[in-house]
Design a protein around this nucleic acid. Structure first.
Length: 280
DNA sequence: AAGAATGTTACATG
DNA sequence: ACATGTAACATTCT
């Protein structure tokens, strides 16, 4: 679920809920494996008493800078969610972790599938440096992207999903970007023309910016979906043009959208707009 | 009831 | 070193 636009929406939600400046009184770990580093007991001890000094995003990580030089990294994986609640109230079925705050609120972590991971680190650079560039950063120019694309010979779909190549894309936004750029997901990255590289660069940035503008993508309803910190669904599902739209008409040419499996992930394409070979 | 689902990673094989 | 495939994590929904 949460890709770059959803994580960005969460970070903005935490900031506008005035989480910065709050002190963490204690942590309740209900599913210890969610805490990747250090072990749950040490995590509880180390995080108690820290003030939250800043909140940002890197790739799909929520990054919280804490007092005393510690950084909390939260990765939501497939079904992780963060919410702020006031006062004590019963944890619902899939609450895995909670941080009690000095103003009486609690930051609650909910994760149906338990794939999410929290890490409390003295030096997060070791982890974050493994990520590729931020696609929306000013320094991520078409030239930078073109050079990176040319350095590999891989199918576009798994390459764009690779967080060490580019940080933040997931299955939804890759399919949308490839459709917008009119490129087949199995095209080899090294085979793209200069025009195609520029088209893909622009498509990625547009698709991600659109996702953020619409507050993220919420597919269907229910527990395991994306919701903002305030508990609201995103609106980007209304802006999806190919993802999970198998059999419906391509908005560009009207051909029926197809679903294929590439690198173990479903891909949605327009068979007419996204040919597997080079432009003639 | 089998299969798929928005993500990552360790491990094996080419 | 690089590319690719598989399994695993755990649960819900179709």
């Amino acid at each position: 679920m949460p890709e770059l636009p959803e994580v960005e929406t969460v970070v903005r939600g935490l900031r506008s809920a005035r989480l910065v400046g709050r002190r963490i009184c204690g942590a309740l770990v209900r599913w210890p494996r969610i805490v990747a580093t250090p072990r749950a007991a040490a995590f509880r001890r180390a995080i108690a008493g820290r003030r939250i000094e800043r909140i940002s995003r890197r790739g799909k990580y929520v990054v919280m800078g804490l007092s005393g030089g510690l950084t909390l990294l939260v990765h939501l994986r497939m079904t992780g969610r963060l919410a702020l609640t006031r006062g004590r109230h019963a944890a619902d079925a899939h609450e895995r972790l909670a941080l009690n705050l000095d103003d009486g609120r609690a930051l609650r972590y909910h994760d149906t599938r338990k794939f999410g991971r929290w890490s409390l680190l003295r030096d997060p650079a070791g982890r974050l440096d493994r990520l590729g560039p931020e696609p929306l950063a000013a320094g991520f120019t078409a030239a930078v992207f073109a050079a990176r694309l040319g350095a590999h010979d891989r199918a576009l779909k798994p390459l764009l999903l690779d967080q060490s190549f580019l940080a933040g894309l997931g299955n939804i936004y890759v399919d949308e970007a490839l459709w917008a750029a009119q490129l087949h997901p199995a095209r080899r990255s090294g085979s793209l023309t200069e025009r195609e590289r520029r088209r893909l660069h622009r498509a990625i940035r547009q698709v991600l910016a659109g996702g953020i503008r619409r507050g993220g993508t919420t597919l269907g309803k229910g527990d395991a979906n994306f919701y903002s910190v305030a508990g609201r669904a995103g609106r980007n599902q209304e802006g999806l043009l190919v993802f999970r739209r198998t059999g419906r008409p391509c908005p560009r040419c009207g051909a029926r959208i197809e679903r294929l499996v590439i690198a173990q992930r479903s891909s949605h394409i327009c068979p007419r707009c996204q040919k597997p070979h080079n432009d003639p």
